[in-house]
Nucleic acid binder design. Structure first.
Lengths: 105, 105
DNA sequence: TCCATTGTTAAATGATTATTAAAATAATAG
DNA sequence: CTATTATTTTAATAATCATTTAACAATGGA
């Protein structure tokens, strides 16, 4: 189970328009990830701003990076994403059927 | 499907230690909710600070309030919570099995 | 080596945010 | 109507955050 502090960090990382867009783009890009420049062009975000947001996402554990030549590829970390969703959906609903996930609650 | 702006708002509302604690307490309290004063005592948060956080949670649609005599009861809104989780898990994983929810991806 | 490409870092600025204390509002009991 | 309880609002402060610009590394091809 994820610790509350890490959950808050992950939530905060996604609680920003640009970063949510980055993360969703990376999610759609799959495990191979996407080069920083491509993301910059696709989302029309300046490289510096992007780099700033990558740092936040990385620090929260939501993305990982690897260098390939001159390019830096970023990829979503599904494990942490899962952990966050699990934390939000666990111990939920107080016995009522809340409809979250596949729980009957 | 929830709009990105509302998702960001909900994520931001939960991306704070005190508010995440409030929300989880309300979730465990069930649909009946809990009086503001009780929450204040239970979480050891001053009434003013609590009221400030309620406003953020309400504005994000994550909690609802009703007055009963001198007390104001706050309750978690599971529909919005579900919508947020759905948004986070939908269009995820790019075809790979990411393990989120009951999707096979 | 020289140089264009790719990306990060640092400094500065404006905008939000969380918290506290104090004052104000709302509802009820006596 | 007054006092009491419950909660919200306001004002002030300190902290954090997002963006821009400019400068800095690192890579790979001419």
């Amino acid at each position: 189970m994820m610790k509350p502090a890490q959950v808050v960090k992950a939530l905060a990382a996604l609680a920003q328009t640009t970063r949510l867009a980055i993360f969703r783009l990376l999610v759609s890009a799959g495990p191979g990830g996407m080069a920083a420049g491509q993301i910059s062009k696709k989302l029309k975000v300046s490289p510096a701003t992007l780099s700033f947001h990558f740092k936040t996402l990385s620090h929260a554990g939501l993305v990982e990076s690897r260098q390939d030549g001159r390019f830096v590829y970023y990829a979503a970390n599904f494990t942490v994403m899962n952990g966050m969703v699990d934390y939000l959906t666990e111990n939920c609903c107080g016995g009522a059927d809340c409809g979250i996930g596949d729980k009957t609650c």
